[in-house]
Design a protein around this nucleic acid. Structure first.
Length: 461
RNA sequence: UCCUCGGUAGCUCAGUCGGUAGAGCAGGUGGCUGUUAACCACCCUGUCCGCGGUUCGAAUCCGUGCCGAGGAGCCA
């Protein structure tokens, strides 16, 4: 007996096969002598219709009592369906109930709100929409790796536990093996020297600095892993735990960096369009009907590139009454970014050469002494999706900048060393992976595009 | 963290002027049909988010706490 997944059967041409399907009941339509069961095995969006005749040994006892969500193994003949609604079906010879779903199974056949589904994150992948999102996320993840592999990048696993904070990347979560409760009860002071690592450690906020070290050895590398921010951000675009893709390239400047980033984003969109058609069609029906048009547009058109200077001028000339004033030297706010991408250009925009004082220490100073070789890629509806820069490869410049920011150089000696031993121009960027999954799926809330979202006050499951 | 809006059955929601609750779905029972968000009949389901107040009487009005959503800040 051949075990087959539903996704294969949807394109199987040979009829009359005897085979086995394993999955979960999505819906049952009972009558006296025949029951139709929609079985979903997660391999694709589509259900397989199983036809269960009254002659089955366990028809009255089990088949007629099947509940939604139950796990079943069906053996039978794969044949053309005489009725409309599906091309093929499985005429059951045996149906084995592997695991019953209790009658309080919370998923109904009707639509649920995403807020409700979030409360049952362990069950929500069994819905059409969250199942589709999970498959699209997986496809995009695969595309990340294939994109870099095709271009000769090496995948580097940077550490999750770190002792630097990538300066300005946000609040960190402390990692400790100390018995904090006991220390508090005893009224003792925290002494990190007594802790596991002999100093204070935290969950990483970025793998960039470590990736730079490997770029200085392997040439072109990327990281793709979880990162953590303890910011009290309560928005539909932020998570406390999210996945970031961070390539780093030696012998590259800002222009190469932007070219790569644009090519990368388009590659991901085209990959999804080519490989996730069925799931994207579902998202278009239920979440955003213009989705594929928007994805195709972004995948084909060249991104608009402009300097921070020009962006500030455009926003000032627009004579729009913003809540935050646009002025040279201040960072662009959400409303400004949205105005650029959604009102002026109606497509992705790359803003480059930001003022030095609003950007972190590792970005390369431009010759004007005022700006750095930085770039942000802004997407309509999403905001900043990529942030990157050419890194400061000149020892004196880097150290000078760190000193002026009051940083403790000892903490970063290894990073400074990279400029002492064969430094080379290099550049990289970071992509918030969930943001691109959001863009591709059209999901409004970032909590729907990661399986078990971590946000302030919420780490259940 | 700030602003705005919300919390009624397992789910989606209605509930008028203050008089202690309802419809669909889910679940149960039966019927019926190659059905397909099946259909029909009957049955079951409530700390109206918690606490306090006003009132003869509160799901409804007031205060407060908790939780959720949208937006902002911060960022990816």
């Amino acid at each position: 007996m051949q075990y087959r997944r539903v996704v294969e059967l949807m394109t199987e041409k040979e009829l009359g096969l005897h085979l086995e399907v394993r999955g979960w009941v999505r819906s049952c339509r009972h009558s006296k002598e025949v029951t139709f069961i929609d079985v979903n095995d997660g391999s694709c969006l589509a259900n397989l219709q199983v036809v269960a005749e009254g002659s089955l040994a366990n028809y009255a006892e089990e088949v007629k009592r099947l509940t939604n969500g139950s796990a079943i193994v069906v053996r039978g003949e794969f044949c053309a369906s005489p009725a409309q609604g599906q091309a093929v079906e499985l005429r059951a010879s045996t149906i084995k109930v592997v695991g019953w779903a209790a009658e309080d199974y919370p998923l109904q056949k009707k639509r649920h709100s995403f807020e409700f589904l979030r409360q049952i994150s362990h069950l929500r992948p069994r819905t059409n929409s969250l199942g589709a999102v999970a498959r699209i996320r997986s496809a995009l993840s695969y595309a990340v790796h294939s994109f870099f592999k095709e271009r000769g990048f090496f995948y580097v696993h940077t550490p999750i536990i770190s002792t630097g904070d990538c300066e300005g990347a946000g609040e960190t979560f402390t990692v400790s093996a100390l018995n904090l409760e006991k220390l508090a009860l005893q009224g003792q002071k925290l002494d990190w020297r007594q802790d596991f690592f002999g100093r204070q450690a935290n969950l990483t906020v970025s793998g960039q600095l470590e990736a730079e070290a490997y770029a200085m050895a392997l040439g072109r590398v990327y990281t793709f892993g979880p990162t953590f921010r303890a910011e009290n951000s309560n928005t539909s675009r932020h998570l406390a735990e999210f996945w970031m893709v961070e390539p780093e390239m030696a012998f590259c400047d800002l222009q190469d960096d932007i070219d790569l980033a644009e090519e990368f984003l388009k590659y991901l969109l085209r990959y999804a369009l080519a490989n996730c058609q069925e799931d994207l069609a579902l998202m278009m029906n239920y979440v955003d009907k213009d989705l594929s048009l928007r994805l195709e547009n972004v995948a084909e058109k060249a991104f608009v590139r402009l300097s921070y200077d020009e962006a500030v001028r455009l926003l000032t000339d627009a004579k729009v009454d913003f809540s935050y004033q646009v002025q040279w030297g201040a960072d662009l706010h959400s409303e400004h970014e949205r105005f650029l991408t959604e009102q002026i250009f109606k497509q992705p925009v790359v803003v480059t050469d930001y003022p030095l004082q609003i950007k972190p220490f590792y970005m390369r100073a431009n010759d004007d002494g005022q700006t750095v070789a930085a770039m942000d890629i802004l997407f309509p509806g999403i905001g900043e999706i990529i942030g990157g820069s050419q890194r400061e490869e000149r020892l004196e410049r880097l150290v000078g900048r760190m000193e002026s920011l009051g940083m403790v150089l000892d903490e970063y000696q290894w990073y400074i060393d990279l400029r002492r031993y064969g430094s080379a121009p290099h550049a990289g960027f970071g992509l918030g992976f969930e943001r691109i999954v959001q863009f591709v799926t059209g999901m409004k809330n970032i909590r729907e595009v990661i399986p078990f979202p971590r946000t302030p006050g919420s780490a259940a499951f």
